[in-house]
Design a protein around this nucleic acid. Structure first.
Lengths: 414, 414
DNA sequence: AGGCTTTTTTTCGAGCCTCGAAAAAACACT
DNA sequence: AGTGTTTTTTCGAGGCTCGAAAAAAAGCCT
C-alpha cells in the first residue's frame, strides 16, 4: 500500500518541483516558478535561496527581452552547470559511444568506438564498456567527484528496474547486469535503459508541444522497437522494458522472425524482412544483417519503379499498420514518431500503413493520426539517457530524503 | 506540469490514507494503521480522532482473538456505515440493475429490471435508468442526503474521464452522457464506468493476493472485453476506456466482426463467432445474438465428441492466445481472470490458447501464466462500481481540499 | 534629478502538521 | 494489589507554507 506523507517529504518534493521547473523552462524567474508550481512566492523564494546557497542553482542576468517592462526586473534562475555531471553510454550494433554532460545538459566530452559486438565474448564486451567510461572519467578536465550518475542505453530488452540487459540483437549474450557492473566499477549510481524508451524521453524534451502526454516512438531498423509514453509517463512492462511492439503477432504462423518465432510484425517490417521480401527469398530464410547503405539502395530502387522492392515496403507498411491498429485498440490513437534508417523510406511505407490501420478499430480517426520521421536514432538515445540521468540527479541527489540530504548537499556546495 | 504540494494537502492525503487503510483492513487498530501507512502513532491518533468526531469512523469492539494477548487491547476502527451511501447502476444487455450500498460496503437495497435495450429509443433508455434510480432514492428507509455518489457500469466503450458511454453493443445508440444526466437529475456526482474495468477493480478487492499489481480480466461473452491493471493502477486509453482487447487484429482481413471490421479477436472468440463457426456458417455471416443456454448446449456438445463445435472452441482459444501473446509482448505476462459465460467453457478453450500463446514472444513462460475463471460477470461489475464509488467518497468527500471540507464534513457529523 | 508607479523578491509572524518522548489507559499475570 | 505489557493520548518542539507587508529595483514623468 502506498505510504503516508511525512512532514519532511514536503520540502523534498517541492525542491524537486522547483528543479524540474527550472530544467524545463531554462531561465525562469521566481515569479514564473511560483506560477507553474502553484506554490507561494515566499516558498519559492525560500527554496531557491537554499538551492543557490548549495550551488545547485545560479542567478543569471535578466532575459534581454524583459528589459522593456516597468518594475523590478525578473532575475532568471538557471541550473549551475558545475553542480554535477552525468555520463551516458550508448551501446548499439558494432558501436559504442560515451558522453559526459554537465548539470545544465551541455555535452562537455565524448568518445566513440567501433567494435564487433556480435562476436565479442562477454568479458571483452563488458571490458570495452567500462574502459571507455574509465577513460572519460580520468580526463583531467573533469572533476570526477561531480559525476553523479551513469545512464547506459542499449538496443534490446532490459529489466523493468533498469538494471540489466536481458536480451539484445547486437550480441548473442544475455542477462548482463550492466547497472551493477558500472556501479561496482566506478561507485557511481547507474541504470541500464532501453533504447526506444530513451528515444521517447528525448522526444518529450525536444518537442514537448507535440510529444507531451501520449505518443509512440517506433524504431524502424534491423529490428522494430517501441517507446511509449502514456499520460506523460514512460510506459514499461511489468518485468522488462516491455513495449515489444515488433513482436506483436501480425500473422499467426507467418514469416520467420529474428526472435525464432513466426508472424511477428518485425518479421515483415524489420530491415532483414524487407530485404528478404525484396530479394524474393523465402519467408523462412534466416534473417541476415543488412547495411544502411544497402537499405538506402533498396529504397531508391523501390521509388524508381514498381517491383518486388516496392512490394516489400508495402508489406512492411501493412504489418506496421495492423500492429499499430491493435495497439491503438488498447491505448487509443496517439502521435507516432518513426525513427531509424527505414524512417527515411517512410514515404514507401506510409500508404499501405494507413490503409491497414484504417481497417482496424484504432483507425477510426486514421487521418488524424500523424507521423514524424527521424532517420538517426543515436542522438535521440543519447539525449534520452542524459535527461534520464539528470532527472535522477534533480530528484534523488538534490532533493533527497532526510537521511541522505546532509551528505549530498555538503559535497556540492560551491 | 504537476503541481507543488501545499501544506493543507498533507492532512488531506493522510486522511485519505487512513480511510483507505481502514477500508482495506476491515477493523484495524490505530497501531496497525500506523504500521501500514508509515505515519507516527501521534498522527494516526489525531486523524482518527477527527474522523470519529466527524462520524466517518467508529470504534468497534476489540476483535475476539486479540483478547488472548497481554497489555491494553487494541481498539478496532471501522467505517461508519451511516456516514454515506452510494448507488450502483449496471446496464447490460436487456437488463438493468441498481443497488444502494452503505459506506461500509454492505448492500442495503437493490432492484432489477428486464428491458429491451436493443430496440429502445434514446429517451426511453435514459428514462428507465433515471426512473429506477429515482425509485431507490425515494425509498423512505434511505436518507437520500447521505447518497454521495452514483457509479454506473455499462458494457461498451466509455470516455477516459468516465463521463459518457461512447458506444455499446447493447444498444445502437451512441454518445450518451450518462454521468451528466444522472448528476443533473439527482444532483449527485456520478461516473460512467466501463464494465471490464469494474471487473478488474472488483477482482483487486476480492483477492488482493492474486490480483494486486498486474493482472488482466477478460470478459468472454457475446463480445470480448478487457480490464487491465498495471502497477496497481487501472489502465485506460488516452481518450476512451481503452483496452479493447477484443478488437486487436488476429488475422488481417479475416472473419467479420460485430464492429464491422475484419479479423478482430472477437470475430473468432465472441459467442457469436463460436456459434457461427460451430454451425459451419461463413465467416462473413452477420453476427447473431446467442443465448447463454444455447452456448451451454454448444459447450456440452463440444465436450461430448470431436466435431465442428470443438473446433470452434479451439479456434476461439487460438485467437485469444495470439491476442494475449501480442498483449504480453507489450506489458509482459500477468495473471488472467476469464469472466463471463464462455469462461464456463474454458476447458475447451485453454489447450489451443496455451498452444498459441507459446508461439508468441509473450509466451516464453507460458506455463507460469495462470488462468482463473468466473462465469458470472454481473456481480463483479456491481462490486467494482461500488468500490469505485466508495473510494471516491473516501478521497474526495471525506478528505477534500480545504475549500470543500467544512461543508461536507459538517453534513456528515452524526 | 527626484518623486511616483510598477513589478519582483524578501522578510516576518501566524497557523498547521508531524514527530518523539512521556504519560495515561487498559488489560493479563502473579 | 502490584507488576508487566501493549495501546493510545498528550504535549512541546521543530518545520513548512502562506499571506501581508516591506524592501528592492527598475522605468516613467515632470
Amino acid at each position: 500500500m502506498s505510504v503516508g506523507i511525512r512532514h519532511d517529504d514536503l520540502r523534498r518534493r517541492n525542491r524537486a518541483m522547483v528543479l524540474s521547473a527550472v530544467r524545463r523552462a531554462g531561465q525562469p524567474s521566481r515569479t514564473e516558478i511560483a506560477a507553474t508550481t502553484g506554490l507561494s512566492h515566499s516558498t519559492i523564494s525560500a527554496i531557491s535561496a537554499d538551492l543557490i546557497q548549495e550551488g545547485i542553482l545560479a542567478e543569471s542576468k535578466p532575459s534581454e527581452t524583459a528589459s522593456l517592462k516597468r518594475g523590478r526586473p525578473q532575475v532568471g534562475l538557471a541550473l549551475n552547470p558545475e553542480a554535477a555531471a552525468v555520463v551516458t553510454v550508448v551501446l548499439s550494433l558494432n558501436f559504442l559511444s560515451v558522453a559526459v554532460i554537465d548539470y545544465a545538459g551541455q555535452v562537455i566530452a565524448e568518445e566513440q568506438r567501433r567494435l564487433d559486438t556480435l562476436t565479442m565474448p562477454r568479458d571483452e564486451l563488458i571490458g570495452e564498456c567500462t574502459a571507455i567510461v574509465r577513460r572519460r572519467l580520468e580526463d583531467p578536465d573533469l572533476d570526477v567527484a561531480s559525476v553523479a550518475r551513469i545512464a547506459m542505453g542499449i538496443q534490446g530488452i532490459t529489466d523493468s528496474h533498469a538494471r540489466a540487459m536481458l536480451w539484445s540483437p547486437i550480441t548473442p549474450l544475455t542477462d548482463i547486469p550492466f547497472a551493477d557492473i558500472l556501479e561496482h566499477e566506478f561507485g557511481i549510481p547507474a541504470t541500464m535503459e532501453n533504447d526506444c524508451n530513451m528515444m521517447a524521453v528525448a522526444l518529450q524534451w525536444r518537442d514537448p508541444d507535440r510529444y507531451r502526454d501520449n505518443f509512440i516512438a517506433i524504431l524502424l531498423s534491423h529490428g522494430i522497437g517501441m517507446g511509449l509514453v502514456l499520460k506523460g509517463q514512460l510506459f514499461t512492462g511489468t518485468h522488462s522494458s516491455g513495449g515489444e511492439f515488433g513482436h506483436m503477432i501480425h500473422r499467426p504462423g507467418g514469416a520467420l522472425c529474428r526472435c525464432g518465432r513466426r508472424g511477428c510484425v518485425e518479421a515483415y517490417a524489420g530491415n532483414y524482412a524487407i530485404w528478404r521480401s525484396a530479394m524474393k527469398m523465402s519467408e523462412d530464410a534466416e534473417p541476415v544483417d543488412v547495411g544502411d547503405a544497402d537499405m538506402g539502395a533498396l529504397a531508391a530502387k523501390a521509388r524508381e519503379k514498381d517491383g518486388p522492392e516496392r512490394e516489400a515496403y508495402r508489406r512492411a507498411g501493412e504489418a506496421l499498420g495492423f500492429g499499430l491498429g491493435s495497439l491503438f485498440a488498447l491505448i487509443d490513437p496517439a502521435p507516432v514518431a518513426m525513427v531509424g534508417v527505414s524512417a527515411a523510406a517512410f514515404d514507401l511505407i506510409e500508404p499501405a500503413l494507413r490503409e491497414a490501420i484504417a481497417q482496424t478499430a484504432g483507425g477510426q480517426h486514421s487521418k488524424s493520426i500523424s507521423f514524424d520521421t527521424e532517420p538517426n536514432e543515436l542522438p535521440l538515445i543519447r539525449e534520452g539517457c542524459a535527461m534520464r540521468a539528470l532527472s535522477f540527479v534533480d530528484q534523488e541527489i538534490f532533493a533527497p530524503g532526510v537521511q541522505a540530504r546532509a551528505g549530498a548537499a555538503g559535497k556540492n556546495v560551491a
